[in-house]
Design a protein around this nucleic acid. Structure first.
Length: 492
RNA sequence: CGGGGCGUAGCGCAGCCCGGUAGCGCGCCACGUUCGGGACGUGGAGGUCGUAGGUUCGAAUCCUGUCGCCCCGACCA
């Protein structure tokens, strides 16, 4: 009791918020705009980190760590980047507090402890990292430099939402330096692929790869690529970005290298990142009115076993059988939880583990012991089946695979249905209002048109898809020529 | 920053308009009955009513200030 969440149809936003809290993923802290990520939520993040970290290392990257603070003069070196983030920076101006002489027991900022130069709490780390790279790079032999860092960043957002937009969030940011433009572009696209693979294979969330329009580009980048996902309420979510920085940061921080011909040149850069926002994406992509639906590859608990018993004797008999199942499944590397609490009834446990999105539940009681079976329930479809005890070792892993695949296919089907081609502005607006989702439309390529459409419809260009069909046409807004359709949507 | 809402027991809330011994549900503790889809009974513990000041014989309640959080909007690589 008391764990019900509102339905998606009733109030999607409320459903999301309540789900995050009731499933023990995160909660608001008393610090404005900041959240506490609770153990269950954090363990999902750790799963994401582990998978991504391996992918980064498999593509030749190494982890490092750079400071949280960026001196203001360093921060402002790359002008566009600084300008882009200026409005949402937290600044450290002092380094000491002291007792308030007029208010004993309270502290005030010590005016005598003012920093000579303010420190910006990093909203992103290009500045501090490129400032460092200057010292690390002299020759083409030092390139490519392939670094990633796992860190927290702070962006003073006016309005926040758990996981989707918080004032402080966790992420990874890759920062690489290369000897040629082509190589840097290749890196940018490679990491975009890594993100897309991660989203689809681990999160079971289909994404569309594309390039951002000028207006949505990362400040300081030449090109920003992204993966865009579709949420169940028809809104898009940017799930990851990969930037080709050109020589912008190298020039701002004077990072030059001697090439094979002995001539000095600025290095070419990339940066790319995904954040705890992926948690929000994961939740909104799959979950239902009963709670979380987690893809097995990211579920902290793959299988929960709920014993059915009336007496201690019955529990003991069930436990003997459960121990065998635990051994079998754990040997295969699955995380299995045996929920043998005698303080909650089975029905309560069923509901609770459904809320938490555990992919497979096994119930086993006296009836099963007599028949040599277990009851197996899958979270994604809520279907139950009776499985012979002897088959558990092969049947459960197979089922987990099926669930991973089913979740992805379901999301893919939904995403496909939520893409609509439109050829007139009337249709464009109607689809956005009535059907929602992605709208594929022709655009004349100008920032003015993009801004006007955004102003009138709140839809933004999510991306210019990389898999363009090459179909030319006329801009839905101005009627001017367009080389290809771009993807519009209202977005988080 | 504009608009709205809320700070009262661990959580969710009522009480405030109309000042007079601080309540309800869930949770928690104990015991018993229960246990294959969110159990029930009985008893019990738990609150400086965000905070500072004012009015009053008396303030959760009225007044003033202040802090914080949430929601909607603007903003958001």
């Amino acid at each position: 009791m008391g764990k019900e969440i509102p339905s998606r149809s009733e109030d999607y936003s409320l459903w999301y918020n309540e789900l995050v809290k009731k499933a023990d993923l995160a909660e608001h802290s008393d610090v404005r705009g900041c959240m506490v990520i609770k153990p269950y939520g954090y363990s999902i993040w750790e799963k994401m980190q582990a998978a991504l970290d391996k992918m980064f290392k498999d593509t030749g990257h190494l982890n490092a760590y750079f400071p949280l603070f960026v001196p203001k003069s360093m921060f402002e070196a790359e002008e566009k980047n600084a300008e882009g983030f200026a409005k949402e920076c937290a600044i450290v101006t002092h380094y000491r507090l002291k007792t308030d002489p007029e208010n004993p027991g309270k502290l005030i900022v010590d005016p005598e402890a003012k920093l000579e130069e303010e420190l910006v709490v990093r909203p992103t780390s290009e500045a501090i990292i490129w400032n460092t790279y200057k010292k690390w790079i002299q020759s083409y032999r030092d390139l490519p430099l392939l670094i990633n860092q796992w860190a927290n960043v702070v962006r003073w957002e006016m309005r926040t939402r758990l996981f989707l937009r918080t004032a402080e969030f966790l992420w990874q940011e890759g920062h690489t330096a290369h000897a040629s433009s082509a190589e840097a572009v290749q890196e940018t696209l490679q990491m975009l692929d890594v993100y897309a693979d991660f989203a689809e294979q681990f999160m079971a969330m289909p994404v569309i790869k594309g390039k951002k329009s000028e207006g949505e580009r990362f400040p300081g980048a030449i090109d920003t690529y992204c993966i865009e996902a579709m949420m169940q309420d028809g809104k898009a979510l940017q799930a990851g970005t990969s930037h080709f920085l050109g020589q912008n940061f190298a020039k701002a921080f004077d990072v030059k290298f001697a090439n094979k011909e002995g001539k000095l040149d600025y290095v070419w850069g990339t940066s790319w990142g995904v954040s705890t926002r992926l948690m929000g994406a994961l939740i909104m992509a799959h979950s239902d009115d009963e709670g979380l639906v987690l893809p097995p590859k990211l579920a902290p608990i793959h299988v929960v076993i709920v014993p059915i018993f009336r007496s201690e004797d019955e529990l003991n008999m069930v436990t003997d059988e459960v121990n065998k199942i635990l051994k079998t499944l754990r040997q295969q590397g699955w995380t299995v939880k045996f929920d043998n609490r005698d303080t909650q009834k089975p029905g309560y446990k069923f509901a609770e583990w459904e809320l938490k999105g555990v992919p497979v539940r096994i119930a086993i009681g006296p009836r099963d012991l007599a028949n040599g079976t277990v009851e197996v329930a899958r979270r994604d479809t809520k279907e139950k089946q009776v499985m012979n005890l002897a088959d558990v070792g092969t049947g459960i892993p197979k089922l987990l695979d099926q669930i991973q695949e089913n979740i992805f296919q379901k999301a893919l089907k939904f995403r496909t249905e939520m893409i609509t081609k439109v050829d007139s502005y009337d249709d464009f607006k109607r689809i956005l209002d009535e059907k929602t989702g992605f709208v594929l439309a022709h655009w004349d390529g100008t920032p003015e048109t993009e801004a006007a459409i955004k102003e009138e419809t709140k839809a933004t260009i999510r991306c210019i898809p990389l898999t363009a069909d090459g179909e030319s046409g006329e801009c839905v807004y101005t009627g001017k020529p367009s080389a290809q359709r771009v993807l519009f949507a209202r977005a988080y």
